[in-house]
């Protein structure tokens, strides 16, 4: 099976029904994507397929074939931050940080369709992403901030 991950084609030999989450983490060593629930309930495993946020724990490897898969590592890097990541740093959002890859990927999807989201837009888009540490107020502030940063450029 051949997958396109963060712009690079990768050849893998896995069951068709292996969740993309575990292909990325255990077969390809891409660990920014996290396992939280394995059941579509927490959003820690969120990645993009062709720019759309999906739960990688609920996506079969075979269904990701032929798409552009983007993980947090493909969104931006410490040297070349995405606007959302810069805002996440400026607002010091993370506590344990474990949910934040998924939060950022979900927020990136939101901003791609809704460049200037309201609080209600944020509620609607982000409520599937659990944060056990309770960083929601900072996530909300960082999304608004990133939206401003993106509109300025």
């Amino acid at each position: 099976m051949r997958l396109n991950v963060n712009g690079t084609p990768r050849e893998i030999d896995v069951e068709e029904d292996m969740p993309l989450l575990w292909v990325l983490r255990d077969e390809l060593g891409i660990t920014g994507v996290k396992y939280g629930c394995g059941a579509g309930l927490c959003g820690a495993c969120t990645v993009h397929l062709d720019g759309v946020a999906v739960r990688s724990c609920q996506t079969f490897a075979a269904d990701a074939e032929g798409t552009e898969i983007t993980t947090i590592e493909g969104l931006g890097t410490p040297e070349a931050l995405h606007a959302l990541q810069a805002a996440w740093i400026a607002h010091q959002v993370a506590q344990c940080g474990y949910c934040q890859s998924g939060q950022i990927m979900q927020a990136a999807d939101l901003l791609s369709t809704t460049p200037a989201p309201t609080d209600a837009d944020i509620d609607a888009a982000m409520s599937g992403n659990l944060c056990r540490c309770g960083t929601y107020p900072r996530i909300r502030a960082a999304i608004h901030d990133a939206a401003r940063r993106l509109q300025e450029v």
């Binding site: 060593g29 920014g32 947090i72 740093i89 993370a94 934040q100």
Partner: peptide, 27 residues
């Protein structure tokens, strides 16, 4: 202060226990 781990935790580059890899490891 900017927290020491904040860049890693905003870019998916923070490694947690669940991410650790040892040579020859089994799952």
């Amino acid at each position: 202060m900017q927290r020491l781990d904040i860049v890693a935790k905003s870019t998916g580059t923070q490694s947690y226990g669940i991410d650790a890899i040892m040579p020859g490891m089994v799952h």
